[in-house]
Design a protein around this nucleic acid. Structure first.
Lengths: 257, 257
DNA sequence: ACAAAAGTGTTATTCCTACACCCATGC
DNA sequence: GCATGGGTGTAGGAATAACACTTTTGT
C-alpha cells in the first residue's frame, strides 16, 4: 500500500478543499470498532476484553497531536461507501471490514478550521481473528479503548460516540455480532464480545438461547482445547448468516397476526 | 416568501454545480410526511386517512415533468439541518416542521446527470392541523399518497422509501407520533394516524394503554363534539412530550436490573 | 476425582394482542 | 332509548432475565 509507513505523506481534506468554492466538499470518516483484550501489561489473554476504535495521530496543524478517524475526501467517481472502503484499505491497510454503514452527516460550518468540509460518518466493524497475528498498522495508527479515548481531533469524538450508540442498539435486534466475532468462536468468547460492546454482563446461557432460536448459530463440529486445569472442551460455533440482517421485529404496534 | 408562485424561478442544484470541481457538491433533500384524508371525491373527512409526502413537479430537463423532493444546495455558512429547514420554508412555505432527522447519504456518482451531487436525505414530519385551512402551497407543489407516488425524479423515490421505513420503525419505540398528530386529538383520530403510517390496523384500546403507560398522553379536559347520530363526546388529548424521545428500550440484552 | 463447559429446565416478569364488558354522555 | 366513546378487565402468548441443575468430556 502506498505511503503506509510514511505518516507525513497523507492526503488530508485540507489539501483538497480550496477556498473559492460555493459549497462544502465531502469527506468520509469511519469509526471502525473491534473487540480485543486491553493492552495493559497485567491483562491476561482471556481476561476482560474491551471495545476499541481505530485512530491515527495527526502530525500537522490544525489539531496536531490529536487523534483522528481514518477517512478523507470523496473522489469524483466514487460513492461514500466505496470511498470509505478504499480509504480504509489505502490508509490503514484495513481490507477485512465485515460491516460498514452510514451513521450520519456532520456539517457544522466550523467543524474544520479554514475549510468547509461536510463529513459522512460511518460505523465499521472488524472481527477478532485470534489465529493469525494482528494486521500491521501504520506507525501513527493504533487501536484505542472507546472508554478511554485520547484527545480527539475536530468533532471526531462525536462521530465515534454516534457510531457506538448505533452499534449498541443494533446488537440486540440484528445479527450484527457476526462482524465482531471471529469465524469460529466458543459461547464464552462470544459472551465476552457482547459484554465488551454493550458495557454490561451478558448471560452465556441466554445469549445462546436467543441466538439459537433466531437461527443464527451453526455448530462447526470442532472444539476448542480446554485450559491447563482440564474441563470439557468448548464447542466452536459460527454465525449462520454472515450478512447484516434484522432478526427481531419491534414489539409494539406489530401487524395483526 | 420570494418566488413562491413562480415555479420557473427555483434555484436548483444544477445552477450551483460547475464541472471544474474536484469533488462533489452537497444538497439536502427532505421527504416530508403528513397524514391526511385522500383527495378522491368520494372520501369523507373522517374516512380512512393516508400517509402523504410533499413533492414538486420539475419543469425543466433533466427529468422534466417528474416529481422531486424539496431541497437544494447547502450554503457555505449553514449545516445540513438548518439548510433543510431554510429551504423548506423558502421553497414550499413549510415552517411548522415538527420533526426533522437525517436518514442517509445518497452519493452514487451518476445519481444526477451532468453534475456530481451528494444528497443528504431527511425525514420531516408535519402535524395535521384540522382547525385552520391547509397552508398554501406553490402551484407546482402537492401532497401525494406514499402508496401511489407519481414518477419521481432521479433517486428521490428511494429517499422517500428510506424515510418511510425509518418513520415506521420509530413509531413503535419512540414518541415520534407527536409530530404527526394535531395539537389536540381524540384517540380515534390518533389511531387513524398510526394506522395510515404503519399500513395496518391499530387497536384504539391498546394504543391508549401503551401511550398512557409510557406517560405520553395528557388529557386536555376538552372534548370533541359528537357526530349527528349522538354518542359520548370524545375526549381530547395531547402529547405530554412534544420533543423527540425514545420511550421504549430494546428487549434483548438489556442491562441487568 | 475434579474442572469446565454444554445444554435443559424452571420461575418470574414484562409487554404485547385481542376482545369482552360496563360506564359515561350527548342526541 | 340509542349510539358512540372512555376506560377497565382478562385471557393468552411471546420473549426475556436469572439461576438451578444435569450431563458431557476433558485433565
Amino acid at each position: 500500500v502506498a505511503g503506509l509507513d510514511t505518516p507525513g505523506f497523507r492526503p488530508t481534506i485540507e489539501n483538497v478543499a480550496d477556498g473559492n468554492r460555493s459549497g462544502p466538499v465531502v469527506e468520509v470518516l469511519a469509526a471502525v470498532f473491534t473487540v480485543r483484550p486491553l493492552d495493559t501489561p497485567g491483562a491476561a489473554a482471556d481476561g476482560p476484553a474491551a471495545l476499541h476504535v481505530l485512530l491515527w495521530q495527526r502530525a500537522q496543524a490544525p489539531d496536531a497531536g490529536r487523534w483522528a478517524l481514518p477517512g478523507g475526501p470523496v473522489l469524483a467517481d466514487e460513492d461514500v461507501d466505496s470511498s470509505t472502503r478504499r480509504q480504509l484499505a489505502e490508509k490503514v491497510d484495513l481490507t477485512r471490514v465485515a460491516h460498514l454503514e452510514q451513521t450520519g452527516v456532520f456539517s457544522a460550518p466550523d467543524r474544520v478550521p479554514h475549510a468547509r468540509v461536510v463529513a459522512s460518518g460511518f460505523l465499521g466493524l472488524v472481527p477478532q481473528d485470534p489465529g493469525r497475528p494482528a494486521p500491521r498498522l501504520p506507525a501513527d495508527t493504533a487501536w484505542h479503548p472507546v472508554d478511554h479515548l485520547p484527545a480527539t481531533a475536530f468533532d471526531h469524538g462525536g462521530i465515534v460516540e454516534q457510531a457506538r450508540q448505533r452499534l449498541r442498539g443494533k446488537l440486540s435486534y440484528t445479527n450484527i455480532g457476526f462482524a465482531l466475532a471471529p469465524a469460529a468462536f466458543t459461547m464464552a468468547e462470544l459472551s465476552r464480545i457482547y459484554t465488551a460492546t454493550l458495557g454490561h454482563e451478558v448471560d452465556v446461557t441466554n445469549l445462546y438461547r436467543i441466538l439459537h432460536r433466531r437461527g443464527m448459530l451453526t455448530p462447526t463440529g470442532r472444539t476448542a482445547p480446554p485450559g491447563p486445569s482440564g474441563g470439557r472442551p468448548a464447542a466452536l460455533y459460527r454465525f449462520a448468516v454472515q450478512r447484516y440482517r434484522v432478526t427481531d421485529p419491534f414489539a409494539a404496534f406489530r401487524p395483526p397476526s
